[in-house]
């Protein structure tokens, strides 16, 4: 292969990749604020929907030491969203759950109501389950009703839940902390339960002692 030919090849590829890089960076910069705003709005909308009766929300982060901090971009820790009603009273706290489903992770935001020590709503924010089957976890009325009042009491020691949240076979629900699975979408139902349980076991024992502080921080 002649030297001239290789130079031409390198020059072409170099030029095209440089042009490509330039275009991508331009579009990335141009769309970044819109994308971040979309994500923030999506989460805020979800938080206000999932915490029933909430009209205002505030984003907190619980750091490794278990301290409650007001969220600023780039901060590491557990995300906790507090929902307040029109009078500025704390009505619920929302947190994120995530677990492996049938074809990818199923991410949820759930609301915890301190008054009844239970989970009072969930919203799926990201899922790639089979359309028409696994995505029933969002649309199936009977399944969604599981989360009207799902018990999530913190145990006496204050380090975990008193009863783990589990998904049971369709129609076999007996205890208030069990989730009645959708028949035909058991794996997706279980993913929701697992995501909730993993998150609630960790987050709720940390959130409960901080509730007065969250209550006092209303916007």
């Amino acid at each position: 292969m002649s030297g001239r030919n290789s130079t031409a090849m390198i020059a072409t590829l170099g030029f095209v990749t440089a042009l490509s890089g330039f275009l991508i960076v331009t579009v990335f910069q141009a769309t970044k604020p819109a994308i971040e705003e979309n994500k923030r709005l999506a989460i805020q909308k979800t938080v206000l929907e999932v915490i029933k009766g909430a009209t205002a929300d505030k984003h907190f982060i619980i750091n490794e030491k278990g301290e409650l901090l007001e969220a600023v971009p780039g901060m590491k820790g557990i995300n906790v969203y507090a929902g307040y009603d029109a009078q500025g009273k704390l009505v619920g706290v929302a947190a994120e759950g995530s677990a492996q489903g049938y074809s990818g992770s199923v991410d949820t935001i759930y609301a915890y109501t301190p008054a009844c020590e239970c989970i009072t709503g969930i919203k799926v924010i990201k899922q790639t389950e089979t359309p028409g089957l696994g995505d029933k976890v969002i649309t199936d009325k009977h399944f969604v009703a599981n989360f009207d009042k799902l018990e999530a009491k913190v145990n006496a020691a204050g380090d975990a839940l008193a009863n783990a949240i589990v998904a049971v076979k369709h129609g076999a629900k007996q205890n208030p902390w069990e989730i009645d699975a959708i028949s035909g979408a058991t794996i997706s139902s279980k993913a929701i339960a697992k995501g909730l349980n993993n998150s609630a076991q960790d987050v709720l024992p940390k959130v409960v002692p901080l509730l007065p502080q969250i209550e006092g921080a209303q916007p």
Binding site: L13, V16, L23
Partner: peptide
């Protein structure tokens, strides 16, 4: 390279 450039652009635009 050219095709993937535009796919990335579509990806960001659709997300926005």
């Amino acid at each position: 390279v050219i095709i993937s450039t535009f796919v990335t652009i579509v990806d960001y635009t659709m997300q926005a």
